[in-house]
């Protein structure tokens, strides 16, 4: 069994997660306090990618899933990707009026 991540790896991961959260906050256009608009595609795509990477980091390092078998890693990654795909589908369907 692979060992626990260790303090250094945990701290690096935490730094990356914090930075990506700040990027997501900026990408969500927090500066627009008076003129709110629909989130542009590039901004939504950036948030989705950052979120997917963050979920991967939390699973693999914080929860030490990297010590599990490839099958279990695949289950959790697939579930994360499915969730992100559903969110992206809802966003795109609404944006391009594909439903209703």
């Amino acid at each position: 069994m692979r060992a626990l991540p260790g303090t250094r790896r945990l701290l690096i991961t935490w730094g990356v997660l914090m930075a990506l959260t700040l990027v997501s906050m900026v990408s969500a256009r927090l500066d627009q306090t008076t003129d709110w608009q629909v989130l542009p595609l590039w901004s939504a795509a950036m948030i989705m990618m950052a979120t997917g990477f963050k979920a991967h980091c939390v699973l693999m390092v914080y929860l030490n899933l990297r010590a599990a078998t490839p099958a279990w890693k695949g289950v959790f990654i697939a579930l994360t990707l499915l969730t992100l795909t559903l969110i992206a589908a809802g966003y795109l369907a609404g944006r391009f009026h594909l439903v209703g």
């Binding site: 579930l79 499915l82 969110i87 609404g94 209703g100």
Partner: peptide
Amino acid sequence: MLVFTAFFALYAGQRALD
């Protein structure tokens, strides 16, 4: 994770409708 996947599926569906 399964509960949140279902939750986001519902959210995505509602968002697509309105």
